[in-house]
Computed example of a mutant assay.
Amino acid sequence: MPSTTEAAALIPDGWREQVSRLPAEGGPSGATWAAGLPRLLADLLDHWGLSPTGTGMTGWTAVVVPVTREGDPLVLKVVWPHHEAAAEPLALRHWAGNGAVRLVAAEPSRGGLLLEALDPTTDLRCEPVEDACEVIGGLLRRLHVPAPPRVRTLSDWLERQLGRLPQHADTVPRRMLDQAESLMRQLATVPEVDGTLLHTDLHFQNVLAAGREPWLAIDPKPLAGRPGFELPPVLWNRLGELGTGSAFRWSVRRRLQVVCEAAGIDEDEARAWVVVRETAEAMSAADDGDRDALTLAISLAKAMDD
């Protein structure tokens, strides 16, 4: 069994300090979890009979270690327990590798996922942006399957956002709040609003090159919802390519159009979801005092206006 010291050496310097600042979301705080991570990582390596082949890579709340088992390349992902990640193993098992990374095994209670190995050095940032958007749309079309039970629902999310709106009358433009409220109430009544399994963080960096297919999605942050809700992350990356002024509006809407066409999503409904979700982003940015994020959210919502 790997020692705690050996496992700790697999975790990039400084990342545990970053995670330690996260407050608890129904489980351990980031600080408590980070303190026990070397032991947890060592236990999971031993449990699955894995041999590390390199230092771990990190996202915001997870560390991913390249490993082998009986000579087969795999990756071990260990996730800090939080609401958005709770149903990740369920979603990956439901997709069964169709458009997404294949789940080999899971220890949900410990946040451990054993996954097929993809190419972490090659994502959609290396592709022309319209080609990348078409790839994302094609993946979404495949990932849109009936949602299984026990996945967070879009109707619950909408209810929470409606409750937040009155608290932001002085920090988010009134017109944006009013428009979002009207759309939230309208969209909450669309058929099967909680019917489809969604990958709510499908952006250019969360699509990696693979061996069995050209591209596969990772890190789903699953939600049971309505197709179109998950499109805003495509607008949050490669910001420098969006331009300014009228070019910004054209570029934003063009990305949306390409993804919608490839995914079979109604573009008008997708624009409405962008306004709704960007209003939620604006409220969070205002809470955090992040002026740049607030400005971007307002600009993206305005770009949806005809």
Rank of each mutant, 00 (worst) to 15 (best):
A147P: 12
L124R: 14
G59R: 05
D266E: 11
D292Y: 11
G97M: 03
D290N: 15
D46M: 01
Q179E: 12
A100D: 04
P233D: 00
T279H: 08
S246A: 14
R160F: 00
G71D: 04
G225T: 05
N237R: 13
V274S: 09
A96W: 10
E70V: 03
A301D: 03
E107S: 14
R253G: 00
R16C: 04
P191W: 06
F229R: 15
A100G: 08
D305W: 14
P220E: 06
A8V: 04
V275F: 10
Q257L: 07
E261M: 02
D219F: 08
G97W: 09
D13N: 11
I136E: 04
L256K: 07
R39S: 04
A209K: 13
L154M: 12
R175E: 10
R291W: 06
T200D: 09
G30A: 03
L143T: 10
N237H: 11
L216V: 10
L198W: 07
W236T: 00
A303G: 08
G54S: 01
V258R: 14
L92T: 09
T55K: 09
L124V: 06
P128F: 01
G14H: 09
A7P: 11
L118C: 11
F204W: 12
P149E: 00
A96P: 09
T55W: 01
E70L: 05
W95T: 05
M283C: 12
A117I: 03
P146N: 08
D266A: 06
W273L: 01
Q161N: 08
V135T: 15
R16P: 07
M1L: 01
A31L: 11
E281I: 00
A147S: 14
E116P: 12
T32P: 02
L139C: 06
L198A: 03
I218A: 07
D178F: 07
D43C: 01
V151L: 03
A270R: 11
L90P: 11
I298R: 15
P23R: 09
D292T: 15
A169N: 10
L216R: 13
P66H: 02
L45H: 10
R39Y: 00
V193T: 14
V207S: 04
A132I: 07
G138P: 09
W250P: 08
L198M: 05
G225L: 02
A8G: 11
G27A: 13
W236P: 02
L103G: 12
V276H: 11
V275R: 15
E278S: 10
G195H: 10
F229H: 14
R185T: 02
N98H: 15
S20L: 08
W273Y: 15
V151E: 01
T279K: 10
E84G: 02
R255Q: 10
D119G: 12
L300K: 13
A209S: 15
S155F: 07
W80S: 03
V193R: 15
L223M: 13
D288F: 03
